[in-house]
Design a protein around this nucleic acid. Structure first.
Lengths: 227, 227
DNA sequence: GTAAACTGCAAACGCCGTTCGCAGTTTTTG
DNA sequence: CAAAAACTGCGAACGGCGTTTGCAGTTTAC
């Protein structure tokens, strides 16, 4: 019962980023949060997010699963840390020189690249979880770029959210290969579908489809229209 | 060992929609796929997708978990069936009368409504899984609407995918309440962030933000530009 | 020197998806 | 009609999961 309750009795669980990595007493730990998060990311990159079990991470670090709970308080914490760590790959942020739209497009490209490098990241994006320091820096960088845009902060946050969504959308299209199979289903009653499917696949579409989508959305969402 | 192996030794698992619901012999089953899927959807609507365990679904149907495997071959099958079943709520499809863009916007609105009714649906959208008959009908309806648009089938499929993504994005914003908390993080070094956060929340943005986003994206993606 | 705070970790708990085996039911076959 | 085949319902069990507990050993604080 030595290390049971924290002093301040906040009912809501203390955010992982607030808690110190370790105290001042006791033997020096064999691992660190960073080690653990790096191991978890390596597993996720290789075998997907489902393969990131506490036991698997512990095994990769040659320790026991229970030991991880000396560094993290839950698997959700680990996922939060993973998301925040790969968010650091967005750095260095584009400088807001010249057109803000160009800078935001560079940011969007970087986002898509991160999502293509770590396909599991999009699965994390849809859990409502605590926001980390890297996400904080990312938001600030976006707001800095959009500083010259005459729109409300709310609109800018929404624009960031939509940009993120579009980046995920396009990243998934590339990683997942978009391979739906209409396997074994009767497409007979759907004439438009069979017409589209029998058409030759044609050349890949314009390369800047991603840029065009981002551009039109960002401009559209941030346009100041008379209410 | 009576009901072990199917006759045709396909290595890839037979799609759930191909398999007949039941054979001709034996007692009449106490349930049906539809019962099970309805129960699962009710649980997901109430308590989220994570609460949809085989045991929970079985309990709701007052039976044992193992009994469900007489109707489904896995939980993934159940999830596929759930997704396809709520996709039926998109009906009746908008008629392609008048402007194709208006019809697609009606479709997008219907999608967003479905995602708001069933917030768990977006979690299913990102698993690469077998496509069902309702999804088939949905694709056909979209292609029918976009028939007058001079674009390649590939571009149209991508437009459908992006429309779907945007619908999810906006639906999530409404259901999740967008409540990130920057709780307990030091926002000191991020001046643009604090400036944006200290600003009064202001009025909710233009109501047709969703429509504008969809419109600009659909038009942008389907624009025939000289390659 | 002793107490407090810490680390590592095996064992266990309660969930989960899934499989097995068996008793009972209905249909087909001969 | 009887026997075989195909089916249903489902308790029990298997292995894996996240997490908790308890304890032996280690380091620091006083």
């Amino acid at each position: 019962m030595s290390d049971a309750a924290p002093k301040s009795g906040h009912s809501q669980r203390e955010s992982i980023w607030r808690r110190p990595e370790r105290g001042t007493r006791g033997p020096t730990p064999a691992h660190s949060r960073d080690d653990i998060v790096a191991a978890a990311i390596a597993i996720a990159d290789a075998d997907g997010l489902a393969a990131v079990s506490m036991r698997a991470v512990a095994t990769r670090l040659e320790t026991g699963a229970a030991s991880l709970y000396r560094y993290l308080s839950s698997r959700d914490d680990l996922l939060d840390l993973m998301a925040d760590r790969v968010a650091a790959e967005l750095r260095p942020y584009p400088e807001p020189e010249g057109d803000w739209l160009d800078a935001m497009l560079r940011m969007a490209r970087a986002q898509r690249a991160v999502h293509e490098r770590h396909p599991w990241l999009s699965e994390l994006s849809q859990r409502a979880s605590a926001i980390g320091p890297e996400a904080l820096a990312f938001f600030d960088a976006c707001l800095r770029i959009m500083a010259p845009v005459p729109a409300t902060p709310v609109a800018k946050f929404e624009a960031i959210g939509v940009m993120n969504g579009i980046s995920i959308l396009f990243a998934r299209k590339r990683t997942a290969g978009e391979g739906f199979t209409f396997a074994g289903l009767d497409v007979g009653p759907y004439p438009h579908l069979v017409a589209a499917l029998t058409q030759p696949p044609a050349a890949p579409p314009a390369t800047d489809l991603f840029e065009r989508a981002q551009r039109s959305l960002l401009c559209g969402l941030l346009a100041t229209d008379p209410a």
